[in-house]
Amino acid sequence: MTNPPDLVVFSDLDGTLLDHETYDWSPAKPALHRLAQIGCPVVLTSSKTAAEIVVLQQAMGLSDYPAIVENGAGVIGLPGQDDIAEDYEKVRQMLDAIPPSLRKHFTGFGDMSADEIATLTGLSPDAARLAMKRDFSEPGLWTGHDAAKDAFLAAIQEQGLTATQGGRFLTLSFGATKADGMARVLARYKPKHSIALGDAPNDIAMLEAAEFGVIVANPHRDPLPHLKGEAEGRISRTRDAGPHGWNTAVCALLYQLGLTTGTHANG
């Protein structure tokens, strides 16, 4: 039985730990290195697929930790609790069951080629193919007007689906959120402290549920509204964008929590 870690960090990827345009995460290396030194799990928490996140975990040295994938629709790497990937086809079937007049305005990843996804996201063709390996949810673009979008959202709700707006895409799933995934990981690790970092509306519940939330600046999208916990200082905002802001915020919180010296093993 391992000892509970002092801290677990939950991090969104695009626009947060990854640069919005280049997907570079190297500016966050100092903080990631410090977290590794003191044995604090970093749980990648993203709209990305398991296939995409595993590659990033390997590159960042985070393969020993779980990850929350597809906007919280699934959790991988949690001992004894890996989700079974069987929801995606159900989501697609329900999507195709809504009226064609509404369906035509939503272009999901399952409606696109790898080249189209690469062009849309800036991913390489190989990375785009990993993004298409969906297990739990369907991201896509809404191309209709607002009134039709309201009708579309009502129609998918009748089918039993929910929609979550991320930094780029509207994602359809059976409703599990990043905050739900975070709760499962926290129940498993039982850390003394938790930090969540994100930049988009689909991060709000996670940011508000963590002990400390960090809204990472992203000049490519509208800033998040004032969140519960900001007035008390439990939730903060970075001045720098993406991985630069991520690095500064995590280092500051490590100092605040007294986790800047020594090595804290997990058992």
Rank of each mutant, 00 (worst) to 15 (best):
P66R: 09
L78D: 12
D87V: 02
E70F: 08
P66S: 11
G72F: 12
D83H: 08
Y88C: 04
D83F: 10
V75W: 06
L62N: 08
E89D: 13
G77D: 03
D82P: 03
Q57L: 07
G80K: 06
E86C: 06
G61H: 10
S63A: 15
Y65W: 15
N71L: 01
K90D: 10
L78Q: 10
E70H: 05
I68M: 06
V69Q: 06
D83S: 00
A59N: 10
G72M: 03
Q81H: 15
K90M: 03
A85M: 10
Q81I: 00
S63T: 14
V69M: 11
E89C: 03
A67E: 03
G72Y: 09
G72I: 10
D82H: 14
G80I: 04
I76Q: 08
K90R: 14
G77R: 00
M60C: 15
G74D: 06
Q81T: 02
G80C: 06
D87Y: 09
E70L: 04
D82G: 01
D64H: 13
Q58P: 00
K90I: 06
K90P: 00
P79S: 04
A85D: 07
A73C: 03
G61N: 11
Y65Q: 09
G77V: 04
V91R: 01
G61S: 13
D87S: 13
I68F: 11
P66G: 09
Q58G: 10
Q81Y: 14
Q57M: 06
I76P: 01
A73K: 00
G80S: 10
D87E: 15
I76W: 09
Y88I: 12
L78T: 08
D83L: 01
E70D: 03
L62D: 04
G80N: 12
P66Y: 13
L62F: 10
G77A: 04
P66C: 11
G74R: 04
Q81L: 10
G80A: 07
I84W: 02
I68A: 05
E89M: 05
E70N: 01
G61Q: 12
S63Y: 00
A85Y: 05
D64T: 09
V69F: 12
D87K: 08
L62Y: 05
Y65A: 13
S63R: 07
I68K: 02
L78W: 13
D83C: 01
I76M: 13
L62A: 07
P66Q: 09
I84A: 14
V69D: 04
Q58N: 09
D87Q: 15
I84H: 10
A73Y: 06
I84K: 12
I68Q: 02
A67N: 06
G72L: 05
G61R: 13
D64Q: 15
I84F: 06
N71P: 01
S63F: 00
A67W: 08
Q81P: 00
A73W: 13
A67H: 14
V91C: 11
N71V: 08
P79N: 05
G61A: 14
Q57P: 09
